[in-house]
């Protein structure tokens, strides 16, 4: 359904070309939940924004690749056609629901706009649709809530409104960029549960972008690990957690305190150094300067993703040699 191939999204900056997404390929089937995990600056959000055509160009620069959604290349689509797709077939929810909602319009106003634009409903029918969507995402007293402004809602409620808006047209694909990061643990659990339930009900495929391996383990089926604009490793979620092959993935997993780990008994792994700047990436493997297992080849030749176990792709010279 969604197929990204060799996507390269660069940005022109005063300090040079920033390679935010640097040759990413991934496939998603209908109804699938796929995770993209990585630390800040790895390009995971830029990738999602590229899919939706939400990046202003310039400064963004599409240096190559294609994004096919149901067979059509989104990168070459006319702006008008893309607009028709956005919010209808593909939609997105963001990390900060407060800044993603318009503060001067009521929740009902913003929600019913989706129905009016994409379904051509009249005002009262659209409002009815808005109330039904709010009820579906578990907002209590939806008839009252449609008349309220975003500032009157709590963070969890705002994120529910965002989800209601994103799913109003039963999109085939939902891009969720850190949807629970700004929320408290107990609210995060509610929102994850809600997303899972709606996926079952509506058959929406979800591309979940997160830095949190816990969230990935909870709800995704497949996962891609990104670092400095590249996918380092991709596998079924259980496979990845059972057999992480890339030194970055392994380092990442060992640096989160496991349930019940204590400083008194367990050491926390550190990944030495810092993430390199996107305008000045190493010539070989991007992870080489921080990698505890790097060999000479890593410094000069960027590794390609190779399938080393069934459905498990890794970009690493060391892992390739077993």
């Amino acid at each position: 359904m969604l197929s990204i191939r060799h996507l390269k999204t660069y940005f022109r900056t005063p300090r040079g070309i920033a390679r935010a997404v640097d040759g990413v390929s991934l496939q998603m089937g209908p109804g699938e939940i796929m995770g993209v995990v990585g630390e800040s600056g790895c390009g995971k959000s830029v990738m999602a924004l590229s899919v939706l055509g939400l990046l202003a160009s310039p400064p963004a620069l599409f240096a190559g690749g294609e994004i096919r959604f149901k067979g059509r290349d989104l990168l070459t689509l006319a702006p008008e056609e893309l607009r028709r797709l956005r919010g209808d077939q593909i939609s997105m929810i963001f990390q900060e629901p407060m800044s993603a909602l318009n503060p001067v319009f009521t929740v009902g106003n913003q929600l019913s706009e989706v129905f009016r634009v994409h379904r051509g409903l009249d005002r009262s029918a659209a409002r009815q649709g808005a109330v039904e969507m709010l009820a579906k995402v578990g907002v209590p007293a939806p008839e009252r809530r449609v008349g309220e402004y975003p500032y009157q809602l709590s963070g969890g409620m705002r994120q529910r409104v965002m989800i209601a808006m994103a799913l109003a047209c039963r999109p085939a694909l939902l891009l969720a960029d850190e949807p629970t990061t700004a929320l408290d643990v107990s609210i995060q659990a509610q929102i994850l549960e809600l997303m899972l339930g709606l996926k079952e009900e509506l058959g929406t495929a979800i591309l979940l972008i997160t830095h949190d391996l816990g969230v990935v383990a909870e709800i995704t089926r497949r996962v891609a690990v990104m670092y400095t604009g590249k996918i380092m490793e991709e596998a079924a979620t259980e496979e990845l957690f059972d057999h992480p092959l890339h030194p970055y993935t392994r380092g990442l997993m060992a640096s989160i305190p496991r349930a019940d780990a204590s400083f008194e008994t367990d050491a926390l792994n550190e990944i030495r150094g810092v993430v390199p700047s996107a305008v000045d990436l190493p010539p070989g493997c991007h992870f080489e300067p921080r990698c505890p297992e790097a060999v000479a080849a890593c410094r000069t030749h960027p590794p390609e993703l190779e399938e080393l176990r069934p459905g498990h792709r890794v970009a690493c010279w060391r892992a390739n040699r077993g």
């Binding site: 409620m157 107990s186 995060q188 659990a189 509610q190």
Partner: peptide, 23 residues
């Protein structure tokens, strides 16, 4: 609270206690 924390272990079976409403 403890049951709601996402754990980086996809095989862990769990009974999550979902709290209703907001603080």
């Amino acid at each position: 609270l403890l049951s709601a924390v996402p754990v980086p272990d996809p095989r862990r079976g769990r009974t999550r206690i979902l709290l209703k409403g907001d603080v």
